[in-house]
Amino acid sequence: MPRKTSDHLVVDAHHHLWDPARGYEWLEAPELAPIRRVFTADELRVELAAHGVHRTVLVEGGRCHADEVAEHLAIADSTPQIAGVVAWADLTDPRLADTISAYRRLPGARKLVGIRDQVQGRPAPGFLAEPVAAKGLATVGAAGLAFDLVVRVDQVPAAALAAAAAPDVRFVLDHLGKPRIAAGSRGLAEWRTAVAPLAACRNVTAKLSGLVTEADWSTWTVDDLRPFVATAVELFGPDRLMFGSDWPVCTTVASYGRVLAALREALPPLTDAERADVFGGTAIRTYRLEVGST
């Protein structure tokens, strides 16, 4: 059976937009000075057009405020290239269902496709396995939304427990769980052990995103990425992997085009259908994006 036209769309499943004046405190880190500026949808469109990317998913940027949700949905509503928005919410919010309902009343809410909590900023490695997190995850799933896992490697085991306990929730592992690519084989072994149980959960997909910033910023090569990408393909399969640029964070290390080219080069041999999954189909299915055609 031939694939649908939407499967041939190139989708960037992970990027951000921000204005530092609106309260992105994490951008104050000295090494992030190059991206401590406004990034707009107009600038994004230039990158997409230059590199043949058709649709995107705009992901919350660590501001952790409902105002950002309204702003992102409004931007998506006026930007055809942005097919979905992953909005911030606190999993421990006792009124999380009401919070999501309020999001659904905002302009542009038809493009709300997922929720993300800044779990990586929580000190406890086991947070996602705690009852309060399980309750929040169930609420996200009941709302018909995906949940993006932005977690450290030491938090991945708890994510696996959470995913196994909530098979009806769609989980998306951001940045492959942030493996320590700069640590080479040690980082690979540590990450593989942590991520394998999570990959065994069929309700989990993963983003091939944020990898260049986990490598050595000054010396990284495609060869550094290759074993991590190959392992992800082995554990998840192409039908549960998706490309994400992590733009503009990636520009601290590499341009949008270089990140896209590096992933294409780092992937092991795949069929045309499998590559179509990685570069569009998986994101479309996972986030239930309404994308039309090119």
Rank of each mutant, 00 (worst) to 15 (best):
P2Y: 03
T5S: 15
T5L: 14
S6V: 07
D7A: 14
D7V: 01
V10D: 08
A13T: 02
A13Q: 00
W18E: 13
P20I: 06
A21Q: 15
R22I: 06
Y24S: 02
E25H: 14
A29W: 08
L32P: 09
R37C: 02
F39N: 10
T40Y: 10
R45H: 11
R45I: 12
R45E: 15
V46L: 13
V46W: 04
A50H: 04
H51P: 07
H54P: 10
V57K: 06
L58V: 05
D67Y: 00
V69C: 02
H72Q: 10
A76G: 02
D77R: 12
S78H: 13
I82N: 05
V85G: 07
D90Q: 04
D98R: 13
T99Q: 09
T99I: 08
S101H: 10
R105M: 08
L106G: 06
A109K: 01
A109M: 05
A109F: 04
L112T: 07
G114S: 08
Q118K: 07
Q118V: 15
G126L: 06
F127V: 10
A129T: 02
E130S: 14
P131C: 07
V132C: 11
A134P: 02
G141K: 01
A142I: 05
G144V: 01
V151R: 09
V153D: 12
V156H: 06
P157R: 05
A158G: 03
A159I: 09
A159L: 08
A162G: 07
A162C: 05
A164H: 12
A164K: 12
A164F: 00
V169E: 00
R170Y: 05
R170E: 12
K178L: 12
P179V: 08
A182Q: 11
A183Y: 11
A183T: 07
A194W: 01
V195E: 05
P197W: 11
A200P: 11
A200Y: 10
C201S: 08
R202V: 07
N203E: 08
V204Y: 05
V204F: 02
T205N: 01
K207W: 09
L211V: 11
T213G: 00
T219N: 09
D223P: 04
D224M: 08
D224H: 10
L225R: 11
L225M: 03
V229P: 05
V233P: 09
P238S: 09
R240I: 09
G244L: 06
G244Q: 03
S245N: 07
W247M: 00
P248M: 08
V249C: 11
V249D: 08
G257S: 13
R258V: 13
V259N: 11
V259K: 01
A261W: 11
A262E: 00
R264A: 13
R264M: 07
L267N: 02
T271C: 03
D272T: 15
A273Y: 00
E274C: 05
G280Y: 03
T286Y: 00
R288F: 09
L289E: 03
L289D: 06
G292N: 09
T294K: 14
